[in-house]
Amino acid sequence: MYYTAEVSNMCPVAKGAYHGPAPIPEEGQWIQAKEIKDISGFTHGIGWCAPQQGACKLTLNVKEGIIEEALVETIGCSGMTHSAAMASEILIGKTLLEALNTDLVCDAINTAMRELFLQIVYGRTQSAFSEGGLLVGASLEDLGKGLRSQVGTMFATREKGPRYLEMTEGYCSQVALNKDNEIIGYEFISFGKMMDFIKAGMDANEAIEKAKGHYGQWDNAAKYIDPRKD
C-alpha cells in the first residue's frame, strides 16, 4: 500500500466501534453479507437493449455466491434469441461478481444482470423469506407444461381493431366475436401439449385437435375469425 506524504506523516488514531453491514434477508435468514459467498437467493428481473427494441427476463438462482441456475427469456430481434443461448452457457457456475463483469452478448441481458445483481445483494429476492431458498430448477415452474415462455402477442389498428395472436395458453387460432363484432373469446393451441402428443407417436393433425382449448364465451359467438387472415 502506498500513501501520500501527508498521510505518512499523520499520527495513528484508533478506530472506535465497529459498524458492520446491515443484515439482509436471504432464504429465511438475516445475513451480514461481507463477501460474494455470503449471498444467496432466487430472483428475476428485466433488462433492455440500448435502442430499446427488445427486452430480456432473466431468472437466477444463486447459492453461496455461485449462479446454480439461469433462465434467459428474450423478445425482440432474432439476434437476441441466439444471445440468450450463449448467455445460458456463460452464466452458470460464475460468481455474481464475475457475471456482472462478463459480456453476456446482448445489451438487454447485460442490463438484466445488472438489475438482478442489485436485487440480490440488497436482499430483494423472491426467496428472501423462504427457509432454505428455492430448489435448483424452480425457474421452470414459470414456464409451465411444455416448458415454453409465457408470451402475450396482440396486434391492433384503429381501422380494423384488435387481433389476439398469442396468449398464456398458447397460439390463438380463432377469435370469437358477438353480433356487435366484439371479442368474447378465443381458441388456442397449446404447443407444449401438442409436441408432447406428437413425440408420443400421435398423428400431427390429431395432436393439434387434442391440444386445442377455448376461453371466454366461445359457444355463444355470432362468428369466428382467423386473427391472422380475417
Rank of each mutant, 00 (worst) to 15 (best):
residue 1 M to R: 12
residue 222 A to Y: 14
residue 223 K to Y: 04
residue 126 Q to M: 15
residue 47 G to M: 04
residue 123 G to M: 10
residue 181 N to R: 13
residue 61 N to L: 13
residue 26 E to G: 07
residue 219 D to V: 07
residue 179 K to L: 05
residue 57 K to T: 10
residue 144 G to Y: 09
residue 146 G to F: 00
residue 67 I to Y: 12
residue 67 I to L: 10
residue 84 A to Y: 08
residue 1 M to H: 11
residue 160 K to P: 03
residue 120 I to T: 14
residue 81 T to N: 04
residue 198 I to F: 00
residue 24 I to F: 03
residue 122 Y to F: 11
residue 68 E to Q: 14
residue 137 G to H: 09
residue 106 C to T: 06
residue 208 I to W: 02
residue 49 C to H: 10
residue 190 S to K: 04
residue 32 Q to F: 01
residue 119 Q to M: 10
residue 105 V to M: 05
residue 194 M to L: 06
residue 106 C to S: 12
residue 32 Q to L: 05
residue 181 N to Y: 08
residue 146 G to H: 03
residue 42 F to E: 03
residue 55 A to F: 15
residue 194 M to Y: 03
residue 50 A to C: 09
residue 110 N to M: 00
residue 105 V to Q: 00
residue 209 E to F: 14
residue 227 P to I: 01
residue 42 F to A: 11
residue 136 V to A: 13
residue 142 D to F: 07
residue 193 K to N: 01
residue 6 E to F: 15
residue 159 E to L: 05
residue 180 D to C: 08
residue 113 M to Y: 02
residue 25 P to A: 05
residue 191 F to T: 10
residue 164 Y to P: 01
residue 210 K to I: 09
residue 118 L to A: 12
residue 224 Y to K: 01
residue 134 L to T: 08
residue 206 E to R: 12
residue 98 E to R: 13
residue 125 T to W: 02
residue 142 D to M: 11
residue 169 E to N: 10
residue 108 A to P: 04
residue 148 R to V: 00
residue 15 K to W: 13
residue 162 P to D: 05
residue 55 A to Q: 14
residue 181 N to A: 07
residue 98 E to N: 13
residue 206 E to C: 04
residue 164 Y to C: 02
residue 99 A to M: 01
residue 225 I to R: 11
residue 52 Q to H: 15
residue 47 G to Y: 00
residue 191 F to S: 06
residue 140 L to N: 12
residue 98 E to G: 09
residue 84 A to D: 09
residue 52 Q to E: 14
residue 38 D to K: 03
residue 145 K to C: 06
residue 85 A to W: 09
residue 196 D to N: 06
residue 48 W to R: 15
residue 217 Q to A: 14
residue 208 I to S: 07
residue 187 E to T: 06
residue 21 P to G: 07
residue 54 G to R: 01
residue 162 P to G: 05
residue 228 R to E: 11
residue 46 I to T: 10
residue 228 R to M: 08
residue 107 D to A: 14
residue 198 I to S: 01
residue 211 A to M: 09
residue 164 Y to W: 08
residue 89 E to G: 14
residue 31 I to S: 02
residue 143 L to K: 02
residue 130 S to I: 14
residue 216 G to I: 15
residue 26 E to K: 11
residue 36 I to N: 00
residue 43 T to G: 05
residue 70 A to I: 01
residue 146 G to K: 05
residue 93 G to N: 11
residue 2 Y to C: 01
residue 76 G to K: 02
residue 90 I to E: 08
residue 1 M to F: 10
residue 78 S to W: 06
residue 115 E to S: 10
residue 7 V to E: 13
residue 121 V to I: 15
residue 87 A to I: 13
residue 120 I to W: 02
residue 64 E to G: 03
residue 223 K to A: 02
residue 47 G to S: 04
residue 156 A to R: 09
residue 19 H to S: 14
residue 119 Q to A: 03
residue 39 I to M: 02
residue 174 Q to K: 13
residue 200 A to W: 00
residue 25 P to D: 04
residue 126 Q to L: 15
residue 180 D to Y: 08
residue 53 Q to H: 12
residue 195 M to A: 04
residue 136 V to T: 14
residue 9 N to V: 11
residue 68 E to D: 02
residue 211 A to R: 07
residue 83 S to D: 10
residue 76 G to A: 07
residue 136 V to K: 15
